[in-house]
Design a binder for these strands. Structure first.
Lengths: 204, 204
DNA sequence: GTCTATAGGCAGATAGAC
DNA sequence: GTCTATCTGCCTATAGAC
């Protein structure tokens, strides 16, 4: 008589993920406890275990939701030009850091060795999907004539992901969003076909 | 009658730092215990407390030693050309990852929010020194005519540090040293004065 | 400098009532 | 779904003997 709303997740479950997410993205997966979440939500610890049997299951749900939301956001610019899509991709990292958070999967990448197999696989999958998405955008940009760069698609995708993840680390350390912003500008310039290229082309 | 050898640190103390260092660089500062170190060295936990009163002191010593060794290594190329010095800088990151380790301060940067004030300051100082050292090398390279790039010295230094740190994260995730190697190549190319620049110069 | 023994706290997790 | 009560284990740290 009171079926779960289709596609719904349950209010409490969702709130738990919200609080846990913020904790992981600022302190790391191994540096918060069920007690922290319970206190924030004025719940008891066993209530948490009802929704997520163990911390590993909570962590897995966290990555899967992050992954889903991330690519859902990216899908809103599917029809745009490559340069717009790439700028939007970078803006997601900036938005996260502006909320005083780190990338969830970046944090988990640092703690990788301490994660359960399922969590490790989900984290890898997130970066796989990032690499694939970026490769698509880079290809699109070359076809549109706005992008130009050396090396393979996946290599360049990895450079972009690495720079953004590393830059977030540094930007938080110095509490300076500009460090990330500068990296973004640099990355965009690094793939943008410039007048320089045109000069080079005509010179050959 | 048995004074500490000048500049010496004590065998046991040094061994503790060795073991702790490897643990932090693979699992993170909050994901290992005194028990882990004690077991590895066949010592008791209180023996560890004799050398380092608390975990925070151990962590601080760890960062300071890492910092010292890092810049000691860099000093061996003080007299070289900028391109050699920058390649050597990058090779340090590669060496660390090849030993199945992450950058100590990169790991601590991820756990930054959970560290004591003194540890936080030491980590920041490490990256300060990196930024400064890189700025010096970049300046030298421009003076030598082998480097050329846009933006400020510190911005470029931050881009280099960020890329290397982020790239280590990704490379370990995929157990693929080439991911870091590719980033290094890309960074070096990004600051190297190319024939492209000469063409541009003559075109202006 | 290193040990045994142990304190005191917090972690993740379970039993069973409501 | 949520609670109180509790378990077990591990953590950092200390006391005090050798």
């Amino acid at each position: 008589m009171k079926p779960r709303p289709a596609g719904g997740e349950g209010r409490t479950r969702s709130q738990i993920l919200d609080v846990a997410g913020r904790l992981v993205q600022s302190r790391g997966f191994n540096n918060f406890s069920y007690a922290d979440i319970a206190a924030t939500l004025s719940l008891s610890k066993p209530a948490l275990h009802y929704h997520f049997p163990g911390k590993a299951e909570l962590g897995l749900a966290l990555v899967q939701r992050y992954d889903q939301r991330f690519f859902e956001a990216l899908s809103t610019v599917d029809e745009k030009r490559a340069s717009v899509r790439l700028e939007f991709y970078a803006s997601l990292y900036i938005s996260v850091l502006r909320e005083q958070r780190m990338c969830l999967c970046g944090m988990l990448a640092a703690e990788f060795k301490t994660l359960t197999e399922p969590m490790q696989q989900s984290v890898v999958q997130f970066f796989d999907r990032n690499t694939e998405w970026l490769s698509g955008v880079l290809t699109q940009g070359m076809n549109e004539g706005t992008f130009s760069f050396d090396g393979s698609l996946s290599d360049r995708a990895h450079v972009i992901i690495s720079s953004l993840e590393g830059s977030m680390l540094l930007a938080r350390l110095y509490d300076d969003l500009d460090i990330l912003q500068t990296t973004v500008t640099h990355l965009l310039a690094g793939v943008t076909a410039s007048q320089l290229d045109e000069i080079t082309d005509s010179a050959m």
